[in-house]
Amino acid sequence: MVVKDSQPFSVVEDEGFRAFVNKLDATYVFPTRQPLKAMVAAKYAKAKEEAKACVLKANAVSLTADMLTSINMDAYLAVTCHFLNDSNELKTIVLGVQHFPQAHTAAHLAAAKAAIIEEWGIRHKVTCLVTTAANNMIAAGRELNLKHGVCIAHTINLMVKKALDQIHGLQELRNRARKVVNRFRCSTTAKVCYIIQVQLGQPTLKLMKEVEMRWNSTFLMFERMYGEREPLSAAMSSLQTDVTPLTSAEFAVVEECLGMLSPYNEAIVELSTEKKVSASKIIPLMKMLDYTIGEQISHKKSNHGQGAC
């Protein structure tokens, strides 16, 4: 329970939790915080040994690595191992998520990754290291003398985000949409929208919030707003607010954006699955994206003239 639900060790001292367990079994003797911590540490050690034995059976492995930032702005290095087991099933095991307080230089990254590789005994089994296209990540791969690959999903994300950020009119529309979302997500008046959804026979869905660093959050925000445009417009017309709702013309722009972004979102989702070898999908996905976007552009030109884009 502590591991799966991310509960603190102090849960065993909470009055309500103790009363609940006591109702189930009055004879149960609660461990204190320290014995519980030792129990979790023992389970971790056992799980790690089982994972290490599984990895050591593999003939070859590939690694993915990325830098993560906690809500407290602490940096962590995550390294994950991918391989095929004896039954040719794709397995994924997290080798480590380590606190990384030092500077994110290639030398420091290479040293941390080398230590994880040695700890798991896979130095001569690593066939490829996949990271973002950041210079320090690429240089770290060279220092480790490993074949390096750039994450195609990350590359697509950077490409689409850069394109979105360069469209001035779309920036204004995104700002307007964010204000509408914030008005409903941070206020009890959102209930009005949910009531209207029920009256229209629609599921009660919350609006999605855009996250600055992830372009697909823009897609998800637009997708949800467009799907809920009727109850949203009805709710805003009945509220006292200085937030201006999107017009029908602006929703038409949103619809067009969704059509352009949808193939990229589907490609990202497909590349993010863990149970299939994603490298084998790259060429077909790139061909499909090229074909789909080309068809969309040709269709718009034929309908609206050569000035359309």
Rank of each mutant, 00 (worst) to 15 (best):
G96Y: 05
L261Q: 08
T32C: 12
A190N: 15
S280Y: 11
T189H: 14
A140I: 12
T273W: 05
M73C: 12
E49G: 04
E266C: 11
P231C: 02
A75L: 08
K275P: 01
V55Y: 01
P263C: 08
L109G: 12
T92A: 05
P231Y: 01
P35W: 01
L261E: 03
V79P: 05
L232G: 04
T92L: 06
D290I: 00
G96N: 02
S298D: 02
S278R: 10
L144R: 08
Q166R: 05
L24G: 06
L68D: 09
Y76T: 06
G227W: 03
E255G: 01
V150G: 01
L207H: 06
K46M: 11
E266A: 15
R224T: 08
V94L: 11
Q7S: 14
S278E: 06
T189S: 14
A53V: 07
T241S: 07
E49H: 02
N59Y: 09
L95E: 05
E143D: 15
A65T: 08
L220S: 12
W120M: 07
T80A: 03
V277N: 14
E89M: 05
G259C: 09
H104V: 05
V254A: 02
I116T: 09
G149S: 14
L63M: 01
V21I: 12
V198T: 09
V126H: 07
G149Y: 09
I117H: 04
R214Y: 02
R174P: 00
A78M: 14
N303G: 06
A103H: 11
V55F: 01
K281R: 15
V61C: 07
S262N: 15
P245G: 07
M286G: 00
Y76Q: 08
T204C: 15
A26M: 07
S238C: 15
N145H: 11
R178S: 10
L285Q: 03
R183S: 11
A279Y: 10
P31I: 01
K281Q: 12
S302R: 15
C257S: 10
K209H: 07
K300Y: 11
I268F: 02
